[in-house]
Amino acid sequence: MRSEEIEIRTGAEEVVHDLTAECERFVRGAGDGLLHVWVPHATAGLAVIETGAGSDDDLLAALRDVLPKDGRWRHRHGSPGHGRDHVMPAFLPPYASVPVLDGRMALGTWQSVCLVDTNVDNPVRTVRLSFLAG
């Protein structure tokens, strides 16, 4: 298995960060296998979603509806409502796997691999890309 970590600066706002270019670079020429993407953080997740047409903003809006940033959360350190950031990975897990065929991800036409980060207290994230040859 080949593996590499990349660092992503997500900043101080909730974000859907497209990782597709980094993933494509990592698997280019690798042959057939499986790309596994892992985010070793308790407050970030991964989604395979369309970006650029509003779906990424809709995802963040839906997360705000389902997981409001208010005082209901028992986990209370950090900025107000931060407890919801610790629940979010149960909805958007910290992992994704994508088939790789002939060194290219087998994504659908509009699919992108995205890091979803709602934690404004942690502006830098680590993402591990791993390729398991088939």
Score class of each variant (00 low, 15 high):
126 T>R: 12
54 G>Y: 06
37 V>L: 09
67 L>Q: 07
46 L>Q: 05
123 P>Q: 04
132 L>T: 15
134 G>V: 14
27 V>R: 01
79 S>M: 03
2 R>A: 14
15 V>G: 02
29 G>H: 06
21 A>F: 14
32 D>H: 04
36 H>F: 14
25 R>K: 13
101 L>Y: 09
42 A>F: 09
93 P>Y: 03
92 L>N: 07
88 M>C: 08
59 L>R: 04
82 H>W: 02
27 V>S: 03
67 L>W: 03
126 T>W: 05
15 V>H: 00
93 P>T: 11
46 L>E: 05
30 A>G: 11
70 D>Q: 05
82 H>K: 06
102 D>G: 13
74 R>E: 13
95 Y>L: 14
123 P>D: 04
119 N>G: 02
67 L>F: 06
100 V>C: 08
39 V>I: 11
127 V>Y: 02
53 A>G: 12
114 C>S: 11
95 Y>S: 13
121 D>N: 00
106 A>G: 09
83 G>M: 08
19 L>H: 06
27 V>F: 01
34 L>G: 00
27 V>C: 02
129 L>C: 08
79 S>L: 08
84 R>K: 11
93 P>N: 13
39 V>P: 02
120 V>I: 13
44 A>P: 06
107 L>C: 04
97 S>I: 13
77 H>E: 14
57 D>C: 06
71 G>L: 08
59 L>Q: 10
70 D>I: 01
46 L>C: 02
49 I>E: 10
17 H>A: 13
65 D>L: 10
43 T>V: 10
62 A>L: 15
23 C>T: 11
33 G>M: 07
21 A>R: 15
116 V>G: 08
27 V>W: 01
78 G>I: 00
40 P>D: 07
67 L>G: 08
1 M>A: 13
47 A>Q: 12
5 E>P: 12
34 L>K: 01
125 R>H: 03
57 D>M: 09
42 A>S: 10
53 A>R: 13
4 E>Q: 12
54 G>W: 06
121 D>S: 00
18 D>E: 11
110 W>A: 04
72 R>F: 02
85 D>V: 02
90 A>W: 10
5 E>A: 13
54 G>Q: 09
38 W>G: 08
68 P>H: 09
53 A>T: 14
64 R>A: 14
30 A>P: 10
86 H>K: 06
55 S>F: 00
113 V>I: 15
91 F>P: 14
87 V>R: 05
32 D>F: 04
108 G>W: 02
132 L>V: 15
125 R>G: 00
79 S>C: 02
13 E>Q: 15
124 V>Q: 13
17 H>I: 12
130 S>H: 08
93 P>S: 12
131 F>N: 06
32 D>G: 07
97 S>Y: 10
113 V>N: 08
54 G>C: 05
14 E>P: 04
37 V>A: 09
38 W>E: 12
100 V>N: 02
89 P>C: 05
108 G>Q: 06
100 V>Y: 02
68 P>K: 11
